[in-house]
Amino acid sequence: MDWYLDILKNKYAMFGGRARRKEYWYFVLFNLLASIILGVVDGITGTYSEDAGLGLLGGIYALAVFIPSIAVAMRRLHDTGRSGWWLLLALIPILGFLVLLVFMLLDSEPGDNQYGPNPKVAQGLPV
């Protein structure tokens, strides 16, 4: 939970630097859980729109985490030594998603790279 809150509070629109796999995947996990919970609440309260495929609370939440989601994904790509522009692969159906998934699963580039120091080293973890 700390990883998620840290991104929302301190790194809301921080596009530079690097993000460990743990930071990225905890953020994705909590986003998924929050979306499911809000979807259920939208369904119970009747604020879910079948035409839009989204409820009122879910839509507000999606807008609130849109920028932090892009920022943490860019930092994750930076950690693997790639530019944030690689996120545009998501526009390619299926294949783009799969390539990005592989990139997000890769380990950190050891040592410093052009985007900053390795976050594992900064936290005193073995590389």
Rank of each mutant, 00 (worst) to 15 (best):
W86A: 04
G96I: 04
L63D: 07
L77F: 05
A122P: 01
F15C: 00
R21K: 04
F103H: 11
G46V: 01
L63R: 11
G81F: 04
G43T: 07
F97I: 13
V121L: 15
G17N: 06
L38R: 03
F103M: 14
N118G: 05
L33G: 12
L33W: 08
L32T: 14
Y61I: 02
N118Q: 10
S69Y: 02
R20N: 04
L101A: 09
P126D: 08
L77E: 05
E109N: 10
A122N: 11
A52G: 06
I67F: 13
Q123F: 10
G58L: 00
Y115V: 03
S108A: 14
W25G: 05
M104K: 06
V72W: 06
M1D: 11
G81H: 01
W3L: 08
D51H: 10
H78P: 04
S108E: 07
V121M: 08
A122V: 15
N113S: 06
R20Q: 05
P68R: 05
W85Q: 12
Y4G: 02
L77I: 05
F27Y: 09
A73C: 01
E23V: 07
L63V: 13
F30S: 02
N10L: 08
A13L: 10
K120Q: 11
N113K: 03
I60N: 07
K120C: 04
R82H: 14
F15W: 11
A34D: 02
S49A: 14
L54V: 14
L87A: 00
L29N: 10
R82P: 02
W3F: 15
K11R: 12
I67Y: 09
T80G: 10
A122W: 01
L54E: 15
D42M: 10
V40Q: 06
I70Q: 02
D6L: 12
G39V: 00
I67N: 09
M74Q: 08
A122L: 15
Y4S: 01
Y115S: 09
E109S: 12
L100H: 04
P68H: 08
F15H: 09
G46E: 12
F97N: 06
G53I: 08
K9P: 07
G124V: 03
A73E: 03
P117L: 09
Y24S: 00
I37S: 14
D107P: 04
V65H: 02
P117I: 05
F27A: 04
M1E: 12
H78T: 07
V121G: 00
E109V: 10
L57V: 05
L8A: 09
Y12P: 00
L33F: 13
N10H: 13
N31I: 05
F27W: 00
N118M: 01
G46P: 10
L8T: 04
G46R: 12
I36M: 11
I70L: 15
P93K: 06
L98S: 00
K22D: 07
F30C: 03
S35D: 13
L57Q: 07
M74N: 00
W25I: 09
A64M: 12
